[in-house]
C-alpha cells in the first residue's frame, strides 16, 4: 500500500504545512472578514429596514386611527343633525296641523251658523208662506178673514205636533 511507504512522508507533511498554513492565514485575514462584513452589512440593512417598516406601520396606524375617529365624529354629527331636524320637523307639522285644525273648526262653526241662520230664515219664510196661503185660501174659499196671529199660532201648534 503506497500510504504506508515512508519515502514521501516528509515531503507530504512539508507541503501540507505550507498549503494549509497559507489557507488558514488567507481565509483568516482576507476571505472570512470579507464574508462577515457582507453578512453584518446585510443584517444591519435588514434591521434598519425592519425598524423603518415598523415606524411607517405605526404612522399608518395613527393615520387610520384618526380617520376612524373622524368618521365616528361625522357619524355622531349626522345622527345628531337628523335627530334635531326630525324633532323640529315634527314640531312644525304639529303646529301646522293644529293651525289647520283651528281653521277648519272656525270654518265648520261658521258654516253651522250659516246653516242655522238659513234654516231659521227658511222657517220664517215658510211660516210667512203658510200664513199667506192659509189667509188667501180662507179668504177665497170661505170669505173669511183670519188674523195673522191666529194663523201663526195654528202653525206653531202644528209644528209642535210634527216635532
Amino acid at each position: 500500500m503506497p500510504q504506508l511507504n515512508p519515502e514521501f512522508f516528509i515531503s507530504q507533511l512539508f507541503w501540507l504545512f505550507v498549503t494549509f498554513s497559507f489557507l488558514l492565514v488567507f481565509l483568516w485575514r482576507i476571505s472570512l472578514p470579507r464574508i462577515s462584513t457582507v453578512l453584518n452589512k446585510r443584517e444591519k440593512k435588514i434591521n434598519e429596514d425592519i425598524a423603518e417598516a415598523k415606524e411607517l406601520q405605526a404612522e399608518a396606524e395613527k393615520i387610520q386611527q384618526s380617520i376612524e375617529d373622524q368618521l365616528k365624529k361625522a357619524h355622531q354629527e349626522t345622527s345628531d343633525m337628523l335627530k334635531t331636524s326630525s324633532t323640529s320637523f315634527q314640531e312644525k307639522t304639529a303646529d301646522e296641523l293644529s293651525k289647520i285644525d283651528e281653521a277648519l273648526d272656525s270654518k265648520i262653526n261658521e258654516s253651522a251658523n250659516l246653516i242655522e241662520q238659513n234654516k231659521n230664515e227658511s222657517l220664517l219664510k215658510i211660516h210667512e208662506n203658510i200664513k199667506d196661503i192659509t189667509k188667501l185660501t180662507l179668504s177665497k174659499i170661505a170669505q173669511f178673514n183670519v188674523s195673522d196671529n191666529d194663523i201663526s199660532n195654528a202653525v206653531k201648534s202644528a209644528e209642535r205636533k210634527i216635532n
Binding site: F8, I10, S11, Q12, F14, W15, T19, F22
Partner: peptide, 17 residues
C-alpha cells in the same frame, strides 16, 4: 537533508487551496 519533493500530492493540495 530532508526530501521535500514536489509531488502529485503537493499539486493536489495546491489546487485545493
Amino acid at each position: 537533508g530532508y526530501d521535500i519533493s514536489f509531488t502529485n500530492s503537493s499539486l493536489s493540495m495546491i489546487i485545493t487551496v
